[in-house]
């Protein structure tokens, strides 16, 4: 199966470490990942809140190209792109009226889309399709020493049930445990919202949301928070000084992408995983421990 890779705008720059680590991890696990050629912005919630049909049509261009490229499924690491592309895909697949209108719009660019693809998140592909056994087989070191707060955020579990529970998802928990790390299983922020773009528009509200997420992790002894979304990562990582000023706290929590942690276990060089580009560096692991003994 060839996966059509849809990085999305954030992964080009602000979430570069996510892009690097995602590609490296797929390469190490020998899963074919082919970038969707000349992809455009999915439109995010911004377009969806302005003009529905245009929003669907703009994001359907990407699916159309992926289909013509011969990809079986689309891999979208950004939670926002993932939701938007899935939403578009669902409407094209199940709603004949929407399919006709979207295809009418696409025809202006000589494109069409049948709805034949599946849109998936890399976390789902890695854990549910590739499987923990195959991943652990290829790992060269354990993640022992990390106590990880798994942060899923909103959009990979909502609005529609897809691959994990909406209130208490555990896909990342299982992955990190299999890699030998400790997981904060009772992390209360798991699926709470980081505020997304509110950080620009209503900063005060968003700072509080993020402060709660940090506090929940730190008070449970986490030494890092693992994310699956560039928006969550950016809000949690880069606003810590403002949060500390507001809450009189002293948080310095590394916020890493789940693919970066997986990459470390696979023995990929930290630099290639973009670990050097984080604003709060991840503490170095003790000398490499082999994977033996990890269940």
């Amino acid at each position: 199966m060839k996966y059509g890779y849809y990085p999305g705008c954030s992964l080009e720059y602000t979430a570069k470490p996510y892009d690097l680590s995602c590609r490296e991890v797929f390469k190490a696990l020998q899963i074919e990942l082919e970038e969707i050629e000349d992809w455009n912005c999915c439109g995010a919630t911004m377009y969806m809140s302005q003009d529905t049909l245009t929003a669907y049509s703009v994001s359907a261009r990407n699916l159309s190209i992926a289909e013509h490229q011969g990809c079986g499924e689309v891999c979208a690491p950004c939670s926002s792109c993932y939701t938007i592309l899935r939403k578009t895909n669902r409407y094209v697949k199940w709603d004949p009226h929407a399919r006709a209108m979207i295809n009418d719009a696409l025809s202006a660019a000589d494109l069409s889309y049948t709805g034949g693809l599946e849109v998936r998140h890399p976390l789902d592909i890695l854990v549910n399709t590739i499987g923990l056994n195959r991943i652990v087989d290829r790992c060269v070191r354990s993640l022992e020493g990390y106590r990880i707060a798994p942060y899923y955020g909103c959009q990979i579990v909502r609005p529609v049930y897809h691959f994990d529970d909406m209130d208490n998802p555990t896909t990342m928990d299982r992955l990190f445990k299999a890699l030998g790390a400790e997981v904060v299983e009772d992390y209360p922020g798991k699926v709470r919202c980081c505020g997304g773009m509110l950080m620009m528009t209503f900063e005060d509200v968003a700072l509080d949301l993020n402060a709660d997420l940090l506090e929940g992790a730190v008070t449970r002894g986490a030494n890092c928070i693992a994310t699956v979304c560039p928006m969550c990562q950016m809000n949690l990582e880069s606003y810590q000084p403002q949060i500390n000023a507001k809450r009189h706290s002293n948080y310095r929590v590394p916020i890493v992408y789940f693919t970066q942690l997986l990459g470390l276990a696979l023995g990929i060089e930290p630099k290639k995983l973009g670990l050097d580009d984080l604003l709060r560096p991840l503490p170095k692991l003790a000398p490499a421990k082999p994977m033996e003994g990890v269940k």
Binding site: N40, D51, T52, L53, T54, Y56, S57, V58, R61, M101, I102, D104, A105, L106, S107, A108, A109, L111
Partner: peptide
């Protein structure tokens, strides 16, 4: 392509 799609979609919708 993106511009043509937007223009058409705005017209239909």
């Amino acid at each position: 392509e993106v511009r043509a799609i937007i223009e058409r979609a705005e017209k239909i919708g």
